[in-house]
Design a protein around this nucleic acid. Structure first.
Lengths: 249, 249
DNA sequence: CGAAATCTTGAGTATAATCAAAAACGGTGG
DNA sequence: CCACCGTTTTTGATTATACTCAAGATTTCG
């Protein structure tokens, strides 16, 4: 049931048999959610958190001008609103990009888990710290990098994160966003995203068709993006699985 | 000694007498650091975290092009690298903006504190979650807002955060950055920052001279910035202290 | 097959970057 | 107190990047 969570936690730090068993005991309410559905909203005060089992979810905020900024992309194994465990009012919206499966975990169960298994508590804390680290990198991305590098960077990140939870098929991954949505994540207009993608394609770095992304030249893409996966804080093994190296092009 | 930390934690959630006493017991190494000093660097694996007692600190990352993005500004009471407690390799640099005082707390002591006082553990976890929430808002800021609103937003945030720890003098605060540094936080060139500041001054929203920022028209500044302090997750009291309201201008 | 959504292209515009230089400021030492 | 230095702020002119608007092509899906 919560296999993706176990895989995710393992990609960050090893778990004991005991801890894995405890995770297996967690009561959950599994829910199938259709695409483009806001299932957690700004202002909510939930008493449960959502473990993403399958699909893709984004967190976003809307500006007064009605523009949406996507602040993060979540993949299976992630708990996008784990922070609601300690922060009462949610200040973002969670939306499915595609039909997704979510396991809701009562905060009560998470608190029990934390007191019974301090190491698991720290592991959960760690996942929220890694989320913060990813936000930091996104600030750098939107603040300093040119549009092409910015787009390339998110592609690199997504490939590595999906690979860490076993959801990359070689250099091919699901890329679950329209160009307009990708623009909302990058802080770029849809038109400009289109031009950026054409640029990346003409450099023979990627192929993107439908909702499949193929990385043709990993080294080149990383080089262009200045991608260094350190900030994802994966274990050497999972990271190694990510790809041989980050040779500059 | 760790008074600022107590004030900070209290601004988020109440502490028991017991917990306050426990915090008072923490061993620390107090250090005075001169301005513009990198005291934690990318790649470090520290066994202690830095509680900022006095002064200002920024976290930043450098891009290959040699540009620096400031990803956050820390005020007294903050522990900028608390995440190193659970994440081994630091992926950013901490730099003092002005001469500052820091109390280094051994991770060992923090772990002991966490096992002895679960509520304090959650309180510390909560501070890291609020940091993440601030990063999210910064992503929105750099991704969606125009330069003037972006600058105004950071000013609003700084005023509220300083007020929460008792470091605002009415509507006047220390603004510890040069225009160039402010630009590194905003993702703007120094020249453009200058023009933005002139704009804010000519709208009679702020005064900025030397390193003192006076907010002349809080409502107007908030309105322009689309500033809503929810994401800082302060307690009603501390937030109330922040200012009457966020009337749109 | 047709309708809706998504992607693509072109043209004109706006915002912010860059480059370069001058003015103002802050501290220091004579 | 003032002359000097380095830093920071300010100004002007030019350029580049990305946005907007608008329309056409293509894909997706019922």
């Amino acid at each position: 049931m919560i296999d993706p969570l176990i895989r995710k936690l393992t990609s960050i730090a090893p778990l004991t048999v005991d801890e894995e068993a405890a995770l297996g005991q967690i009561p959950t309410l599994v829910s199938h959610i259709r695409e483009q559905q806001d299932f957690v909203r700004e202002g909510d005060r939930p008493n449960r958190s959502a473990l993403l089992l399958d699909g893709f979810v984004v967190a976003s905020k809307i500006t007064r001008a009605g523009k949406r900024q996507i602040t993060s992309i979540y993949v299976p194994g992630d708990i996008p609103d784990l922070h609601s465990l300690h922060i009462d009012t949610i200040d973002m919206t969670l939306t499915t990009l595609v039909p997704s499966t979510v396991a809701f975990i009562p905060h009560e169960a998470l608190r029990d888990l934390c007191s019974a298994h301090p190491q698991l508590c720290f592991a959960l804390w760690r996942t929220t710290l890694i989320d913060a680290s990813i936000f930091r990198e996104w600030v750098v991305n939107t603040g300093q990098r040119a549009a092409v590098a910015r787009a390339a960077h998110i592609m690199c990140e997504l490939l590595v994160r999906l690979r860490a939870v076993g959801l990359a098929d070689g250099d091919v991954i699901d890329f679950p966003m329209t160009q307009a949505e990708f623009g909302e994540a990058l802080g770029l207009s849809p038109v400009h995203v289109n031009r950026v993608l054409q640029d990346l394609r003409s450099r023979r770095l990627i192929e993107l068709k439908g909702r499949r992304l193929t990385v043709i030249h990993w080294g080149g893409l990383c080089g262009l993006a200045e991608f260094d996966p350190t900030y994802l804080h994966l274990r050497a093994e999972s990271e190694g699985a990510a790809k041989p190296s980050l040779a500059t092009p």
